[in-house]
Amino acid sequence: MINVVNNESIEQEAHAYIRLFSAETGLSEKNCDHRIKEVTMLLHDTGTYTHTAEELIFGARVAWRNNSRCIGRLFWESLEVIDRRHLSSEEEVFAALLEHIDFATNDGRIRSTITVFRAQEAGAGDIRIWNHQLIRYAGYATEEGTIGDPASIAFTEQCQRLGWTGRGTKYDVLPLVVQIGDQEPKWFDIPEKFVKEVQLIHPDSASFDELRLKWYGVPMISDMALEIGGIRYTAAPFNGWYMGTEIGSRNLADVDRYDELPAIADAFGLDRSTNTSLWKDRALLELNTAVIHSFKANGVSIVDHHTAAEQFMRFKKREEANGREVNARWSWLIPPMSPAATPIWNQSDLTEKNVSPDYVSQARPY
């Protein structure tokens, strides 16, 4: 855990953040200096400091603006920030997570949202959400192969160890697992009414529809930490909305995920006996067509990869106009389908660096 007592680097990070906050929000130089002195005194006396509500909101939004792996940062200023730093029990955290799911889902009109729980502090138990995403499907390893999502096998086994039992289908929604400090983690089933799912149908193929594929509507990352001015929030789940290729070119298409391309190719009568038929490419296109079509038909927010790439270029131009260099990992920003047909393809000189505030990976708690 972070212990900021006599930690000069943390103090420097805190000062740098207060100056950034002041510069971009119009805080006067006098008030900025006063806040820096106040934070410095708190660090020396207590080993930590507490962000004001305004500092937390701004920091969470700038963390999105800074995150090198996100293509959808054009809308960073619209992030809804829910402050739940006062909660202390697993049951309270679970209730707040349901609130987040409900608010963010918004019956399909998805709102970019983050819920921030208490900060990491020496002497206090960290709050950790074991799930990679608040809503995700289970994966079961069997002698015949995997049922469900192979990426979820390890976590599913942890849930079963804790006492959870799934139905054993391809699309079992995993429970939420919350741990505080060294206490035994607790799991909580998500009521069905909170889970927005989209049945995938193709605009031109009844054979595709017979595959009965589906996916959940909102990607809510829940295992990353939010870092603001030297303070780390170990539980800060956040979401935007899906780019179609995340589902159609990765989750359902990857051979180490749902691996649905062979079945889709067969549904369209494609020749899988040779790679030169480009059956994988053609099946991938039809799957992505179905994803976009189905989400839009169900009124669930989604963006195609071409529009998302154009939005990123607008974001880049806007940032440069404000004198800020865009932090970016090119290999994460090019979409997994037709990347050369998007404007980001020619931006391979984009660079990634350590910045703050940011969302950062943290070791699994299990």
Rank of each mutant, 00 (worst) to 15 (best):
Q199L: 12
L200W: 11
L200N: 10
I201N: 13
H202S: 00
P203H: 02
P203V: 05
D204Q: 10
S205H: 04
A206Y: 04
S207T: 15
S207H: 14
S207F: 04
L211Y: 09
L211E: 11
L211F: 09
R212S: 15
K214H: 04
W215E: 05
G217D: 07
G217N: 06
V218P: 04
V218L: 15
M220Q: 11
I221G: 05
S222C: 02
S222V: 05
D223R: 11
D223P: 00
A225T: 01
A225E: 07
A225L: 01
L226Y: 01
L226H: 06
E227L: 12
E227T: 14
I228R: 02
I228H: 04
G229A: 03
G230M: 05
G230H: 07
G230C: 05
G230P: 09
G230Y: 02
I231T: 15
R232W: 03
Y233V: 00
Y233F: 15
T234Q: 11
T234G: 09
A235D: 07
A236C: 11
F238V: 15
N239G: 05
N239R: 08
N239I: 06
N239S: 09
W241F: 15
M243G: 00
E246S: 01
E246C: 06
I247E: 06
I247K: 01
I247L: 14
G248N: 04
G248C: 04
S249T: 08
N251Q: 07
L252D: 04
L252F: 03
L252S: 01
D254K: 01
V255E: 14
R257S: 10
R257G: 03
R257C: 10
R257E: 15
Y258G: 08
Y258L: 13
D259T: 02
D259P: 01
E260M: 15
L261T: 06
L261S: 05
L261N: 09
L261E: 08
P262I: 08
P262R: 04
A263L: 11
A265E: 14
D266G: 03
D266T: 15
G269W: 08
L270R: 09
L270N: 12
D271R: 09
R272H: 00
S273T: 13
S273I: 01
S273C: 00
T274I: 06
T274Y: 02
T274S: 13
N275T: 14
N275E: 14
N275V: 13
T276V: 11
T276D: 14
S277P: 10
W279M: 05
W279L: 04
W279P: 10
D281K: 10
D281M: 06
R282H: 11
R282P: 01
A283H: 02
L285M: 13
L285H: 15
E286V: 02
L287V: 02
L287F: 02
N288V: 12
I292H: 10
I292N: 14
H293M: 08
S294Q: 08
S294A: 11
F295Q: 11
K296P: 07
K296E: 14
N298L: 02
N298F: 05
G299P: 10
V300C: 12
S301G: 07
I302W: 03
V303Y: 08
V303L: 13
H306D: 10
T307I: 13
A308V: 09
A309K: 00
A309C: 11
E310Q: 12
